[in-house]
């Protein structure tokens, strides 16, 4: 028992180290070459030694971007884990209930409405800045989330909720498609770019709010570890063990939705991390215990997001590749590998 504990703690520490290492790489590398020595001295408070432009690159861009990658990676991973446990479905992820597509609809709706009122492409109208898009995304995500919470009280089975959620995703997706069809070219371009996702949309001014809001959600998720363990046993066992299923279901939905909505609002619909990371965490730690899985998912999510952010900005690759493609590009083969490995194991066991 104790040995097991030790192994878990050591593994978590190793992940943390990997995260710190990735963070350093993210600070060291970018499209502009800054010597690691300069980076370190900038963060050790000797900022007077380096040029103002480099200070801005580090403080306003590289550092916030790395922090956003960490926080968004951790948040999406935990949101995915919550969904997979709640629905006891390994394919669930933050986007499955239409929360992300709700965010997309919000953005499309805002761009379209503004565009059709003025006869102008909304992107030409100034007020559709990144903050405007964030608000629209957040509003769209909340809209879907509240609808889900509303109906969740009338639903007996989570599978029904899952199906309704998927229907909502299709519904919002097709509405978005319709809006795109009737939109101005420039707005479609804006929508496409928003859909690529980015960790660079948050500056040092908004960073504390973004980080704080996600941290709060992550903290609450840790408090739910025991409930999640019970839910994994099935509703009836969970209920029999004293869990208020309806309340907890709503709480978990709210929490996953909250994390997804905020992250999507600031970083766009970032795919895959939410789906893949819980599997990675389970496989690394060989456990279903959420007291381990939640911190493990947070750390793995942060490491993966940092890694993707690094790849997307590699100097040779010329600028910022869309983060959304990178996460899937790196994540998908990894998950396939994990699954195949698992399959082999279970064949050996049986």
């Amino acid at each position: 028992m104790n040995n097991l504990h030790k192994r878990v703690v050591i593994s978590l520490l190793l992940l943390l180290l990997a995260g710190l290492f990735m963070l350093l790489l993210n600070l060291f590398f970018g499209s502009v070459t800054i010597h690691p020595k300069e980076v370190i001295s900038a963060f050790l408070g000797h900022s007077a030694d380096i040029a103002e432009s480099r200070r801005i690159i580090l403080y306003e861009f590289r550092f916030p971007q790395a922090i956003v990658a960490i926080v968004a990676g951790a948040g999406l991973a935990v949101a995915g884990l919550l969904m997979q446990t709640l629905f006891r479905n390994p394919l669930a992820d933050p986007s499955i209930l239409g929360i992300s597509s709700g965010a997309s609809l919000g953005v499309a709706l805002a761009l379209f409405l503004a565009g059709s009122f003025s006869g102008q492409a909304a992107v030409n109208m100034g007020w559709f800045t990144s903050i405007g898009l964030s608000m629209a995304a957040f509003a769209g995500a909340l809209m879907v989330l509240f609808f889900l919470l509303m109906i969740s009280g009338r639903i007996k089975h989570v599978v029904t909720l899952l199906i309704i959620g998927i229907m909502i995703a299709y519904l919002t997706g097709s509405l978005t498609g319709l809006l795109r069809y009737y939109s101005q070219k420039e707005d479609i371009q804006a929508f496409v770019i928003w859909g690529m996702g980015t960790f660079s949309g948050v500056g040092s001014a908004q960073l504390p709010f973004f980080t704080g809001a996600i941290m709060l959600g992550l903290f609450v998720s840790i408090l739910l570890s025991k409930s999640l363990n019970m839910i994994l046993l099935g509703d009836r066992y969970a209920q029999n063990l004293g869990l208020n299923i309806k309340f907890q279901t709503r709480l978990i939905l709210l929490l996953a939705g909250y994390l997804t909505a905020i992250i999507t609002a600031y970083a766009g619909p970032i795919a895959f991390i939410g789906l893949a990371v819980p599997h990675i965490a389970r496989n690394l730690f060989k456990t279903s215990d959420h007291r381990i899985l939640i911190p493990a998912s947070m750390l793995s999510g942060a490491v993966l997001a940092l890694f993707c952010n690094l790849i997307a900005r590699l100097p040779g690759l010329d600028g910022n590749l869309p983060i959304n493609s990178i996460t899937s590009l790196i994540g998908a083969p990894f998950v396939i590998w994990v699954m195949l490995r698992q399959n082999k194991q279970s064949i050996l066991e049986s």
Partner: peptide, 21 residues
């Protein structure tokens, strides 16, 4: 119950321990 529960990593000791929840 007869329901099949848990994912591939759930251990016997986890399930029995949940009785103490």
């Amino acid at each position: 119950l007869t329901d099949r529960i848990g994912d591939q990593y759930m251990k016997v000791s986890d399930v029995v321990a949940s009785g103490r929840y």
